[in-house]
Design a protein around this nucleic acid. Sequence first.
DNA 1: TCAGGTACCTACCTTTTCTTCAGTATGGGA
DNA 2: TCCCATACTGAAGAAAAGGTAGGTACCTGA
Lengths: 111, 111
Amino acid sequence: MKKRSYSCGLDAAVDVVGGKWKALILWALHEGPRRFGDLRRGVPGISEKSLIIQLREMEHCGLVHREVYHQVPPKVEYSLTPLGESLNQALIPLGEWGEKHMETIEAIPAA
Amino acid sequence: MKKRSYSCGLDAAVDVVGGKWKALILWALHEGPRRFGDLRRGVPGISEKSLIIQLREMEHCGLVHREVYHQVPPKVEYSLTPLGESLNQALIPLGEWGEKHMETIEAIPAA
DNA sequence: TCAGGTACCTACCTTTTCTTCAGTATGGGA
DNA sequence: TCCCATACTGAAGAAAAGGTAGGTACCTGA
């Protein structure tokens, strides 16, 4: 969250789910609660540090819920809140678009 | 475009439309072609430089079309390609989500 | 002759984001 | 006694993104 006022709904949504990882993390949670280490493996390429930061921010925004089990070794489960769930629904068409045009996208030259 | 392979469709879509501005620019084009200066005014807060860079990248990806009119003073129109149009469609639910939850989002404390 | 308007480009700098790597706490098992 | 696994934290630095300020080119009209 950086802004306080938005020019449109998309502006607000991008502010919340923008960045390199948030959408992917949200997506990785859509089948139910997952542990930290499990999430880390489920979002290929992310570093521990980034994952934690993103999770904290999304928790702060009310998108994900964090449940600590006082065990040794520690166990923490992350899950979607209803708000996170609704956002995830809104991301489905975007995911489908990417799926459909993935070959086109991959064929774009780097330079 | 930074990656060559994606873990899922959403990953690919985020790679294409990620960042602070691309989604907003795409959105601003959804009613038809717009001139550079017009776009600049239509995407509040963006700097000239960022707008140009984003437009170039999206042109490169085949999302927008750039039409130069050889006039003085110069006139350049940007419009959506069919691919850009389809991506825009996929962004609609996200925009609606943002619209619906904007008050909630704005109420999130900064710290 | 000279400012005006449009669509840029370039250099420089700051801010933000991401990664890497090292380290912490806990208690069970070898 | 020491190592293991998990879920973190912190420092440091690189890389990416963004902003600012200046300049270019062209023709028009004053």
